[in-house]
Design a protein around this nucleic acid. Structure first.
Length: 495
DNA sequence: TCTGGGGTCCTAGGACCC
DNA sequence: TCTGGGGTCCTAGGACCC
């Protein structure tokens, strides 16, 4: 940190160590390096060492699209993920576009290889990665196709391997509050120093991924999730960064606030206006002031920045919503918009059915230039699986935007219900469905649709009373969980 | 930088209930 | 009756993440 009070200032004796009772956990964050590009290299070995861009919209005539993943070689040219493809092509022309006879053509080594996204293949590779992770950790949270947290506390520990002097590090001399044997600050920073068992274990995980799935990963190891996340980012690609307990605050302090998970451009700017530039600043910032500026998120980010995060690694749950959206050349044309929304609705309903889930809320999104996002949603009296209804409601909601110029449209279903899918096919619910179908009050214009019997065997029932009591106790438990550890509910899903 | 697609969570305001 | 407070659900928007 630059010129303020040292971080240790906020670690005062009286405050006590809230994690003093809990043994230090060992959390790994595994983050695949430019995953899509790595997958492409797996099946196209000639791409090794080349600048590779995976994205959409780079074919001649296409103009809408963005970079999904750029290899590190492509990043050298300034190409970044989420960048408009047109910009990427400026920075790094496409190899096939370079005419060898044109004297002005860029040299081949100044060009990149552009490939379309092939999610199915990436899912396959991700499956192999996950198999390794399953093998290496019982407690896992898969955050996305290329990222996961592992709690490996029961597989390894922070003990120093090979029994050297445990406190040979110089990084935290001002901290006398750590009674545990003090491991070195970072595996990456101090390779010659005593290594922890955790570091060895993480290396094992990393090597197995590379060997068995064929793609590189960066791994961060720390006593909590948010520090592990930052650690995995700290030395990409192909990194392994270990932040032992007692070194977390020091590790985080010098990093820019944007490196804290949950700080995006807007929050970064807000913090900068408060003179908060680094994680250390954020950790030491006045919590009340943060509440004023950022709401309850503020103090939470501050705790993260201080290395304080007691979230458990919990398995990924079922999705909360499903959506499809698509960008289009800006248009006000009504039939174009309706056709687009219809297609998206059909698609999203099919995906919901494939995944065996019912939905109770149907919504649309209409993005006006330059980038004004409008959303509209309507809830049904109960969960349904009814593609026609998705389309109908979506089109109805779209009517509000009949005159509007849009550049992007989307359809979403939410309030998903997976639990009852099986039961819906059991006898007994059909009667409830029919009865409820009659009073389905889908606001306004549509009335007689209930007997769409021909349309298909819809599991289109409205929530009967499967179990009132179970329902009650469920929500009660929910409330209790939220109540008992306030942080958890909001924190639990941050990752 | 004129910005793809698929998600998550939080918040604010209004309706409604007791 | 002019007025208190608690709680829930819903919608819309915003920020963020990969």
């Amino acid at each position: 940190m630059n010129g303020g009070t040292p971080v240790s200032g906020e670690t005062l004796p009286g405050a006590g160590d809230e994690d003093g009772d809990a043994p230090d956990r060992v959390v790994c964050h595994v983050d695949m390096d430019c995953f899509y590009a790595s997958c492409e290299r797996l099946r196209h070995p000639d791409l090794a060492g080349e600048p590779v861009v995976v994205g959409m919209g780079y074919e001649p005539g296409e103009s809408i699209g963005a970079v999904a993943t750029a290899s590190y070689e492509a990043r050298e040219f300034g190409v970044e993920s989420a960048m408009p493809i047109s910009k990427a092509l400026e920075l790094l022309p496409r190899r096939v576009d370079a005419d060898p006879d044109d004297p002005d053509a860029p040299a081949p080594e100044e060009t990149g290889r552009y490939l379309p996204v092939d999610l199915d293949f990436y899912e396959e590779v991700a499956g192999e990665v996950k198999a390794v992770l399953r093998d290496c950790a019982d407690t896992r949270r898969e955050v996305s196709i290329d990222e996961a947290y592992l709690d490996v506390t029961d597989r390894t520990s922070w003990a120093v391997a090979g029994g050297g002097g445990g406190t040979a590090d110089g990084g935290d001399d001002d901290r006398s509050d750590t009674d545990a044997p003090d491991p070195p600050p970072s595996g990456a920073a101090g390779p010659a120093e005593a290594r922890t068992l955790a570091e060895g274990y993480a290396r094992h995980v990393k090597d197995r991924i590379e060997r068995e799935a064929g793609v590189p990963a960066s791994v961060g190891v720390a006593p909590n999730m948010s520090a592990a996340k930052v650690a995995s980012d700290a030395d990409k690609p192909d990194g392994l960064v270990v932040v032992p307990p007692g070194s977390v605050a020091e590790f985080l302090a010098p990093l820019p606030t944007a490196d804290v998970h949950g700080v995006g451009p807007v929050t970064e700017e807000t913090l900068a206006e408060l003179g908060i530039e680094t994680a250390g600043d954020l950790a030491a910032a006045d919590r009340d002031r943060l509440v004023e500026e950022l709401g309850e998120r503020g103090p939470e980010l501050s705790r993260r920045a201080a290395g304080d995060d007691d979230r458990e690694v919990t398995p990924t749950g079922l999705p909360k919503s499903l959506s499809r959206e698509s960008a289009l050349p800006t248009t006000a044309d009504e039939s174009t918009k309706r056709e687009t929304v219809s297609a998206l609705a059909v698609d999203v309903a099919r995906r919901a059915r494939d995944r065996g889930c019912l939905y109770q809320t149907i919504g649309i999104k209409a993005v006006e230039p330059p980038f004004d996002v409008n959303t509209r949603a309507r809830s049904l009296p109960g969960p349904v699986d009814d593609p026609d209804l998705v389309e109908e409601v979506a089109l109805d909601l779209l009517a509000e935007f009949d005159e509007t110029r849009v550049r992007k449209l989307g359809v979403r279903v939410s309030k998903l219900d997976f639990a009852e899918t099986d039961q819906a096919t059991l006898g007994g619910f059909d009667a409830a469905a029919d009865a409820a179908d009659g009073d389905r009050a889908h606001g306004g214009n549509r009335e007689a649709r209930n007997e769409s019997g021909d349309g298909g065997k819809l599991t289109d029932w409205v929530d009967g009373p499967p179990d009132r009591e179970g329902d009650e106790s469920g929500s009660g438990a929910d409330r209790e969980r939220r109540g008992t550890d306030e942080g958890q509910a909001s924190l639990g899903d941050w990752s």
